[in-house]
Write a protein that binds this DNA or RNA. Structure first.
Lengths: 177, 177
DNA sequence: CCACGGTAGTTAACGCCTGTACTAGTTTCA
DNA sequence: TGAAACTAGTACAGGCGTTAACTACCGTGG
């Protein structure tokens, strides 16, 4: 007996209900695909919400702020353009967010050496210290989540997600321009 | 030779770089956990962005609008509270979004029978027709994505994600109040 | 050497989401 | 029965996202 059979319908168990009705009552053909993507999307939402709420918000960072600092930290001083690409945000979003983070003293925005149009984003010393700190908590929390699976299962999951995403070269996927 | 070794760093291959530096230069312990959650989050972002951009935006629906209509469609007439729970939005978000969808003629908002505080959300005939239509395109697109994996792999992926999320009862996860 | 097309970043208008504070209706129980 | 505690929904302020339009700069080729 599943959660939705028993009448307790929630964010997670809704997936089952949706799948049953789509297949049985409406005859949609790709049931497994729906289940897969709904599950993927919801799992990601749950984990991300938890990390943001338990690690980042309490320290005054938004999830996006963390992401921008994170890529700047690890991929070195970056042009804003590249930061947008690595975070998955638009250039405008990076521009706005950078304003906030610069005024918070975590990020530094300097004209790029070779190109007068570009700006280079880098962490301030405070920002660097902050990231090392924040990431410690982030990593512990990630570890708790990942603990649901054995290392072997984790590797399989990563491999399957990688396969799913890498396949996108095969068809015309809409990403950011 | 990986993508990031070769110097082509993008949204997807950044995961590798991040992992390498976190482990080698900073000595963070839970490397596999970071890789897992970063991969999960990015895979979900990519797929969702594509579905929104290729299926929903062209038809005038936002991703959130689609989600709200979707749960209303499949989980019957719903109290706004329940709709918030099933979509993973706040009650305020449902309230706002419902306003838009009602004025667009897709959603109907009626006082609940038993409880004077509650509102029942249901699809209008137009909304129902629209969902059947939109979902046809959505489902085809999902099928293209899922085609990256064999059905067996898809089932394993679903199972692993389910295990990951279900484990959250084991510790104190921050979800919406 | 300069006009032109292309590119980086920012700004503006707008939509969505969040938390908080409020209103109104319901339930509890003394 | 009536006061207090609770619950559902909404209004509001603030943050962040998007696209489109604009500015400034770069590189090329006539």
């Amino acid at each position: 007996m599943t959660a939705s059979d028993s009448g307790e319908l929630d964010f997670w168990s809704f997936v089952e209900l949706a799948n049953r009705r789509l297949a049985r009552e409406y005859g949609f053909r790709h049931q497994l695909a729906t289940e897969l993507l709904l599950t993927l999307n919801r799992a990601s939402t749950i984990v991300t919400y938890d990390l943001e709420a338990s690690v980042h918000r309490p320290r005054g960072l938004s999830w996006s702020g963390f992401r921008l600092l994170f890529v700047t930290w690890l991929a070195g001083p970056l042009e804003a353009k590249k930061a947008a690409e690595l975070t998955g945000m638009s250039r405008a979003a990076v521009s706005n967010l950078a304003k906030t983070l610069v005024s918070g003293g975590l990020l530094s925005r300097d004209p790029a050496a070779g190109d007068g149009r570009s700006v280079l984003l880098s962490l301030t010393d405070t920002g660097h210290q902050e990231m090392v700190d924040v990431f410690r908590a982030h990593n512990e929390r990630e570890h708790e989540w990942a603990g649901a699976l054995t290392p072997e299962e984790q590797r399989i999951l990563i491999m399957l997600l990688d396969k799913l995403v890498t396949h996108r070269d095969q068809f015309d996927v809409r990403g950011r321009n």
